[in-house]
């Protein structure tokens, strides 16, 4: 399992691995927001937590179609399915690698982008905490979507259509926590819910992802 994780990290960092694309996308979306809603600081400060959450979510979504498709095309998934490693472990490791290479950089970049959007000082720590707790769910749910669409050519748009509704609860609780944090309110409930969603998806969804992958490998 460690070998698979290390290989995925290595592949992401090598040329053509697409590492950093998500970050660049996150940056561009954030920069475009003031252009579309206007430069008033108070307005930006008010919408900053939500915009940053949405931007991170979209950046995460963008990288999903490569998550399993590359391994599908070159036959790695076939060989994985005949290896001693259970597919449940494979999809979990894949999700973890996606989180480390895509989501974690987004979490770390979010406060910097928060400055651009006049995020209130109180909001920074809760933005990072909520993203840290919520992005694992995004990666795991995304892996499920990637497994569903892995056999399809041009499955990218379908992948978004399938995954985005599944992202709704995570987005609601995550953005709510970040917003309450920025407003100086209590963040306990949404953060607990967010952690609950992440824990539950991490525990249960890999079984669905592996089942779906087995169907697609037939």
């Amino acid at each position: 399992m460690k070998a698979l994780l290390l290989r995925d990290l290595k592949l992401a960092l090598r040329a053509g691995g697409g590492f950093g694309l998500g970050l660049a996308f996150f940056l561009i979306v954030t920069v475009l927001v003031p252009f579309s809603v206007g430069p008033q600081s108070e307005l930006l400060a008010r919408i900053a937590p939500g915009v940053l959450w949405l931007g991170a979510l979209l950046a995460c979504l963008l990288s999903l179609d490569r998550l399993l498709a590359l391994d599908w095309e070159d036959g790695t998934l076939d060989l994985m399915a005949t290896s001693p490693l259970p597919l449940e472990a494979v999809v979990t490791i894949k999700a973890l690698a996606h989180w480390i290479t895509t989501s974690l950089p987004l979490v770390l970049a979010a406060p910097v982008l928060g400055i651009l959007l006049n995020l209130p000082t109180a909001g920074f720590q809760w933005l990072v905490v909520s993203l840290l707790l919520g992005t694992p769910a995004l990666s795991v749910i995304g892996t499920f979507g990637a497994a569903l669409t892995v056999g399809l050519k041009r499955g990218g748009l379908l992948l978004s259509l399938l995954v985005l509704p599944l992202y709704v609860p995570t987005l609601i609780f995550g953005a709510e926590a970040a917003r309450r944090g920025a407003d100086g309110m209590s963040v306990e409930t949404p953060l607990l819910m967010l952690a609950g969603i992440s824990a539950a998806t991490l525990a249960l969804l890999p079984f669905a992802s592996a089942a779906v992958l087995r169907v697609n490998l037939r």
């Binding site: 070998a3 040329a15 391994d71 070159d74 036959g75 076939d78 060989l79 290896s83």
Partner: peptide, 29 residues
């Protein structure tokens, strides 16, 4: 659990070296 399968596509990662590719599968198995 005693079968090794090889078909048309070999699951080779083009950006990894020959050694890295082989070592990966040796560790998986």
């Amino acid at each position: 659990e005693d079968i090794a399968y090889a078909a048309h596509s070999d699951g080779i990662k083009l950006t990894l070296t020959v050694g890295e590719n082989l070592t990966f599968w040796a560790e998986i198995f």
